[in-house]
Nucleic acid binder design. Structure first.
Lengths: 130, 130
DNA sequence: CCGCATCCATTTTGATACTG
DNA sequence: CAGTATCAAAATGGATGCGG
């Protein structure tokens, strides 16, 4: 054991991969919305706001795949599907909230930095991914 | 910006926007690499590994714009440019590390959930497009 | 050594329409 | 109501060559 190969750090790759879920446009918002009560598809769609049906489906699938969310189907008419955070999902919610707090606390700081930067360069917002 | 006709939760929008910096493919890695010592461009490039010059430039610019990183130029020959985390950058590093810990702790859990999900659906990895 | 610009491929997202 | 399919647009990432 202990493959001393200097190969790629397995952990880093995985971490990055998992982080990318947090980084995508909607996952975090969905998780947060699911934080209190379980919700139904269109309920979630309303609450998140601005998300397309397609993206909500995709996001939910991804979350479900990672074991962060469970899907419960009630065979009623009309169909009712409820999404709920798993324990794992809840633990992520906590961590994500920390990040959210950081973002809120430093929002002004960052916005100010951006404004100054943009002003100094003359360019409009043309920076990286954000 | 700031569409005044809809009272979108200002915080959420901003938080999401800031989170997207954390979510992109490289920012986190660069921040982590800059965590200990300030580094030079190509030094950083080597340490991150797999990042293209373009992406490193873009990432660094974005980080600089947000006030997370500072760029210091030494007018020597050949030119020497050093990147260093700001205080704000350091505080982000801490938060990010928490998320990283979460990812590492739950890596197996998630990987297992994925495996099960993929098996159950028969589909290969075709879930959410992160 | 630093890093910008251009071209190109892949990935991601959104609009719309349709099914159970 | 919940979910899928298709299509086109946009953002993102990478390779390469040029200039300070």
């Amino acid at each position: 054991m202990t493959p001393s190969h200097i190969h790629v750090p397995t952990d880093c790759r995985t971490v990055t991969e998992i982080l990318s879920r947090v980084g995508d446009k909607w996952s975090v918002q969905v998780v947060v919305q699911l934080g209190g009560e379980p919700k139904r598809f269109n309920e979630l769609r309303r609450d998140v706001g601005g998300i397309s049906q397609r993206m909500l489906t995709l996001t939910l699938r991804g979350l479900e795949r990672d074991g962060l969310v469970t899907r419960k189907i009630y065979p009623t008419i009309p169909p009712r599907v409820e999404y709920r955070l798993t324990e794992l999902g809840c633990s992520l919610l906590n961590t994500v909230r920390a990040l959210g707090s950081w973002a809120i606390e430093n929002r002004d700081h960052i916005l100010e930095a951006r404004r100054r930067f943009d002003e100094a360069t003359g360019h409009g917002p043309g920076a990286d991914g954000a």
